[in-house]
Write a protein that binds this DNA or RNA. Structure first.
Length: 520
DNA sequence: GTCCCTAATGGGC
DNA sequence: GTCAGACTCATTCGG
DNA sequence: CCGAATGAGTCTGACGCCCATTAGGGAC
């Protein structure tokens, strides 16, 4: 039986340790020391995931729970806490909020102060120990003296660290190597890195496979005979809500299939709906026939991970592409092109953008499917726009941003004043953080919690991908994926971009995709 | 009990 | 999702 | 030939936008 105290201590030590190697060994020691039954739980928690499903307990409840009087001596075990989590997660319906708060308070009352801290961080997904999934995988290999490749492969195929840790511990190499891709258990989707631009992507990859990049939701679809299930990027099953994704795959004449693709809604004119509109369908739990008729989802598959009993994860991009072409008709496939010609590639990108899509993906032709990895084998090319906006306020940072004014409130000029369009904390170096903290404090006019209001004088160039409709912001518009490019010390606030400019940009976006008609 | 509004939570990008 | 920083590992450079 | 510098690859943790769901609370 592993004491919760040991995990809490380990987590705290991990935060203090420098160096990957050391952290891996610390986690490995934990995995070696725990019981067979606990290995899965310990491994999962160390990755920062408290449970398979969420518990219905967020920051607000955790903070109140933290105010309960801690126990003076440790007595909780890992199994105890796992049981509490399970119980709390299962509470539903009327009075459930109070019931969850009550159970949570009782759990926290049984924990020492240090254990409370650990539980709180675990529940909030903020372990801040400088070690998550990547190191846990290595720790499993190290703890049970197994080849790292075996563990990585097992995790890739099953997507479940807990299970891999448990099998590694109890069955060793033979058990781990026997783990296979299983139908109706989602594989970790392969991820992509941003590329500078199309030219850079081609230079990196040689003769890449180019594909449209559509702004929808990632889907992984599993089929066995007539049964079809759909999984989201995080591996959540969403089958119920999306019969329009299920049906076309059900009709494919193959017994056994796993596809990777993107799903989104299109307007009557054939242009893609904005992401936020597609999410009205994809974001829901159950099917709504009326909404489905109004916003049917179309899916476009770009990869095939398993076909008729054969797992294709290790096959190269082009072989998987060939398998995909064999079984999926063009109407369900992501438009793609393989070319060495820079001008053809450019034309393909422009074609994608003109159709209202996000951009292109460029894929290394010979790479295997690196599940869960964000290697350089897949690159994404997206459009970037910029605006010169004014800093209206800033928020004190937390964690590694402590002591810096970090998150900026951004506004455009409007009628002699400013309207806020969003916030960002991205793109800032330590040097810039230091500089902006100083500059902003010198312009402080008021404080409200962690927010410092400043005189609207500093102009900052903001890069972003898209403007979207907003209910939250006064202009009715917000920036998507805003990040700082640089401060414009050459520009006074009076020369920052105004809301008319922003609206015009939005109008140009809408010329491709008519948002106005489908917005309530 | 029903209707409407709000805050918290989870999840997509 | 985007980004900077920290760390690792392998390769290249300079004396 | 060896240690230092450099670069590529990974991982982590700062937090952004939106949407749907769920439960609570007040008015009636």
């Amino acid at each position: 039986m592993t004491a919760l105290r040991e995990l809490a201590e380990a987590s705290r030590e991990l935060g203090a340790l420098h160096g990957r190697r050391q952290k891996i060994e610390r986690i490995a020691a934990l995995l070696r020391a725990c019981s067979d039954a606990e290995a899965a739980t310990v491994a999962r928690w160390m990755t920062g995931e408290p449970a398979q499903a969420r518990l219905g307990v967020g920051p607000a409840q955790v903070h109140t729970a933290c105010t309960t009087q801690p126990a003076s001596s440790p007595r909780l075990t890992v199994d105890d806490v796992a049981a509490w989590f399970q119980e709390i997660g299962a509470i539903k319906g009327g009075g459930s909020k109070a019931a969850r708060a009550d159970r949570l308070a009782r759990l926290f009352a049984a924990a020492t102060e240090q254990e409370q801290q650990f539980l709180a961080h675990l529940l909030l997904g903020e372990l801040r120990q400088g070690a998550l999934l990547g190191l846990v995988i290595e720790a499993i290999a190290s703890a049970f003296v197994l080849p790292l490749g075996s563990i990585q492969r097992a995790h890739m195929l099953t997507g479940e660290v807990g299970e891999v840790a448990a099998v590694a511990r109890t069955q060793g190499r033979a058990g781990v190597d026997a783990l296979e891709l299983r139908l109706f258990h989602p594989v970790q989707p392969m991820l992509a890195q941003p590329a500078e631009d199309l030219g850079a992507a081609i230079a990196t990859l040689g003769e890449p496979l180019l594909e449209y990049k559509l702004d929808g939701a990632r889907v992984q679809v599993h089929k066995q005979e007539t049964e079809v299930r759909v999984f989201s990027r995080q591996g959540n099953e969403v089958t119920e809500a999306v019969p329009d994704i299920v049906e076309p795959v059900r009709r494919l004449p193959v017994s056994d299939l796993v596809l990777d693709g993107e799903a989104l809604a299109f307007g009557d004119d054939g242009t893609p709906r904005p992401f936020q509109t597609s999410m009205r369908r994809f974001g829901r739990r159950s099917d709504d026939a009326a909404l489905r008729a109004q916003l049917p989802l179309q899916s476009f598959y770009f990869d095939c991970l398993r076909l008729n009993g054969e797992t294709l994860i290790d096959a190269d991009t082009l072989s998987r592409q060939a398998a995909l072409r064999d079984v999926v008709p063009a109407s369900l496939r992501m438009p793609s092109l393989r070319t060495t010609s820079a001008s053809e590639a450019k034309a393909f990108l422009e074609q994608a953008l003109a159709a209202g899509h996000e951009g292109l993906m460029a894929k290394a032709p010979q790479a295997p499917y690196a599940a869960g990895g964000r290697g350089s084998h897949w690159l994404k090319i997206k459009q970037v726009q910029t605006l010169d906006l004014v800093v209206l306020a800033a928020e004190w940072g937390s964690g590694r941003r402590q002591g810096w004014l970090s998150n900026l409130h951004l506004g455009a000029r409007s009628n002699g004043g400013f309207v806020m369009l969003g916030k960002t904390f991205k793109g800032l170096t330590h040097q810039l953080l230091t500089w902006q903290t100083e500059q902003l404090l010198a312009r402080e006019i008021a404080r409200d919690g962690i927010i410092v209001q400043v005189r609207p004088e500093l102009v900052v160039e903001i890069a972003f991908n898209e403007l979207q409709r907003s209910r939250q912001y006064p202009a009715g518009l917000a920036l998507r994926f805003a990040r700082v490019r640089r401060y414009r010390d050459d520009k006074p606030a009076a020369e920052a971009d105004d809301i008319e400019t922003v609206s015009a940009l939005f109008a140009r976006q809408v010329a491709y995709r008519d948002v106005l008609s489908d917005h309530r």
